[in-house]
Simulated assay, not measured.
Amino acid sequence: MAGVIAPGAAEALEDWLAARRALTGAAPNTEDAYRRDVAGFLAFLAGHRGGPQGRAALSRAGLSDIRAWLAAGRAAGAGPRTLARRLSAVKSFYRWLAETDGFDASAILAARAPKHARRLPRPLPEDAAREMLGTLGHQHPEPWIAARDTAVVTLLYGCGLRISEALGLTGADWPFGESLRIAGKGGKTRLVPLIPAATEAVGAYLALCPYPRAARAPLFRGARGGALNPRLVQKATARARAQLGLPATATPHALRHSFATHLLSAGGDLRAIQELLGHASLSTTQGYTEVDTARLMDVYAAAHPKAGGGAG
């Protein structure tokens, strides 16, 4: 049962978001997600305790309130991953509030997130990734659009960019040098080395693009000249994977995962790959180690005589 959020609690939420924004430069979508998650808890708390809870009253919330909130979320159909994300936001808010208002929030900070299976990346095999790039060049009857889609996806697979990072490039970024300075999540910048194939693909697109390159305009244009919508790249990739008979997991983001996994398979250093991907935490990058290990175990299971897959 949700209640009305007291003005003081709502003000505390906005103060916290402003403090986060100043420290991390979080993207608007990230900030909106934090606002929704914490506001959901504050509204639940008001209903659970029988009325709006002002800022001072928030300090009296405890572990039983958190458990009741998580149970309500579970009953409403939220999965363990969603509940864990919400709890993380509430803990972050309470950590800031406790430091700001001077109270002990250890009970809430000690709350444990529901266990959930870690979702590992699903990279494409190297030959499938290459076929995807080749097939994209034939997915659209307009040559410059086909070249555009190929160029974007080549940046994802060849350089490990997020699709938002590739589409965030402007005319001022061209011509490319040996590396690209990318503004990633949280406003953090990183230098990404460029392979010749990526530079060549972007150059081929620009040679065909009917819209003149401008320093402040998007490098990748939509059919009408505006910024390219990422859904169009996703649709082109979907058509290519259908043509190649690849699974639904063969998405643009999967190509970024493929970049990391194939580097790791070739002997790449985990920390170097972390830097290339722009991961804030090494633990995120370590997921690729698990993927590579899982792939090796599949080969082992298929080939080893005692595993039932080999001839001996």
Rank of each mutant, 00 (worst) to 15 (best):
A311G: 08
S92L: 05
Y94E: 11
G8L: 02
G25R: 11
A183N: 13
G287V: 04
D269G: 03
A166Y: 06
T251W: 04
V291Y: 05
T135Q: 15
R20S: 11
R213A: 06
T237Q: 04
L255C: 02
L264V: 01
T199K: 15
Q243T: 13
T30H: 08
A129C: 11
G268V: 00
G8Q: 08
P175W: 10
V233L: 09
G73F: 01
L58P: 05
D37V: 00
A105H: 06
G50M: 09
R239W: 03
A33K: 10
C159R: 12
S88D: 02
L124G: 07
A18W: 01
I163P: 01
R20P: 02
R224S: 05
S92D: 14
P210W: 08
G134V: 02
A198T: 04
H257T: 02
Q234G: 10
L277I: 00
A117V: 04
A240T: 02
P210Q: 10
A301P: 04
G79Q: 12
G278V: 00
L270S: 11
A10T: 01
E99Y: 06
V299E: 15
P123I: 03
A215P: 08
R162Q: 09
I66Q: 03
L87H: 09
I182S: 10
G245D: 10
L232V: 08
A19V: 01
T293Y: 13
K188W: 06
G226T: 05
A242T: 09
A204M: 03
R181N: 11
Q139T: 04
V202R: 15
A238R: 15
L264Y: 02
L167Q: 10
V90N: 06
G203A: 15
A117C: 00
P7L: 07
R36S: 12
A68I: 01
G168H: 06
S88C: 06
T199F: 06
Q286S: 12
S265T: 05
A217I: 00
A75Q: 13
R221L: 12
A111K: 02
P210D: 10
R241C: 05
R74E: 14
